[in-house]
C-alpha cells in the first residue's frame, strides 16, 4: 500500500561534482498529488537536488549521483534507465520562463509529438492550455510567437507544455522568482489546481510561498563541509509552526542569513 501513496522516494541520495559532495544523504518520500516545497538558504543545493529528480544534472560532465531515487520501485539512476524516458515522466519548469522560439501552439505540441503522441493534437493543446489557465488569454493567437506573451504567461505556457506530455511529477525550480506578484499569485493558484492530478515538487526562496502553497516542506542546509542536506522534512504546518530543528526555526523566523 505504501507505494501507492508515494510518487517518488529517495534513498540516501547524494550528488557529487568531481570530489566535492554538493548534496549529501537525502531521504525523502514525496507524496502523490501533493505539493512538496524545498526551502533553504542560497547555495544549499536545492536546485541541484531538484535537478537530480529528472536527471538534468547528467549534462554537467563532472556530476555523478549515488544512492537511490525510486519511482515505482525503479531506481532512476539504475543501469538500464533511460534519462529521456525519465524526463518524459518527470517534467520540469524552470526559474526563468524558457518557451521555445516557436508559436504558442508548437510550444505545446512539440514535446507531445516527439514523445510519440498519437491522439488529437488540437485537443491536447487546448486541454493543456486550459489546465494551465492560459487558454482564454491565448486561444485567438495560437499561431503567434510565444515570445509575444508576458513573462507570467510565458511561465504558464511552460507549465502547459509540461502538462502536455502528461508526466507523473512536475518539478518547479523557483517558477515565480522572475515574475511580478500578480503573476506569482496566478502560478500559486494554478499549482493548487494541478495538484489534483500531479505531484509537484517546488524549490523556492520565498518562505511565504512555501507556507501558503505547499503541503510538505523539506528544509535544506549546508554542513561544515559545505555539503547540502535535508535537515528536516515534515508537514508544512509543522515546519513553520513547531520546527524540531533549531536551524529550521532560525531560518523560518528570519533569524538566519
Amino acid at each position: 500500500m505504501e507505494n501507492t501513496n508515494y510518487a517518488i522516494e529517495t534513498n540516501n541520495l547524494s550528488i557529487h561534482y568531481g570530489n566535492f559532495t554538493a548534496v549529501k544523504g537525502v531521504n525523502m518520500k514525496v507524496e502523490r498529488q501533493k505539493i512538496t516545497a524545498i526551502i533553504g538558504p542560497s547555495g544549499c543545493g536545492k536546485s541541484t537536488l531538484l535537478r537530480a529528480f529528472n536527471r538534468m544534472n547528467d549534462f554537467v560532465p563532472s556530476c555523478h549521483v549515488t544512492g537511490e531515487l525510486l519511482l515505482d520501485n525503479q531506481n532512476l539512476y539504475g543501469k538500464n534507465v533511460d534519462p529521456v524516458e525519465v524526463r518524459r515522466k518527470i517534467g520540469m519548469v524552470f526559474q526563468k520562463p524558457n518557451p521555445f522560439p516557436k508559436s504558442i501552439y508548437e510550444n505545446i505540441a512539440w514535446g507531445a509529438r516527439i514523445n510519440g503522441f498519437k491522439g488529437k493534437m488540437d485537443e491536447l493543446v487546448e486541454q493543456s492550455l486550459r489546465s494551465a489557465a492560459l487558454w482564454d488569454e491565448v486561444k485567438d493567437k495560437l499561431q503567434q510567437s510565444a515570445y509575444a506573451l508576458s513573462g507570467g504567461q510565458q511561465q504558464r505556457l511552460c507549465i502547459a507544455r509540461t502538462i502536455a506530455i502528461q508526466p507523473e511529477i512536475i518539478l518547479m525550480d523557483e517558477p515565480a522568482s522572475a515574475l511580478d506578484p500578480i503573476s506569482t499569485l496566478r502560478i500559486e493558484e494554478l499549482m493548487q489546481e494541478l495538484k489534483k492530478n500531479y505531484t509537484i515538487l517546488i524549490v523556492t526562496h520565498n518562505m511565504q510561498q512555501a507556507a501558503r502553497a505547499s503541503d510538505y516542506t523539506a528544509m535544506m542546509m549546508i554542513d561544515d563541509q559545505r555539503a547540502g542536506g535535508v535537515i528536516e522534512f515534515d508537514d508544512t504546518k509543522a515546519i513553520f509552526t513547531r520546527p524540531k530543528d533549531k536551524r529550521t526555526e532560525d531560518y523560518v523566523t528570519g533569524r538566519f542569513g
Partner: peptide
C-alpha cells in the same frame, strides 16, 4: 476553472 487532464 481549468478543465484538467485526467491523472496521467
Amino acid at each position: 476553472t481549468p478543465n484538467t487532464l485526467p491523472y496521467p
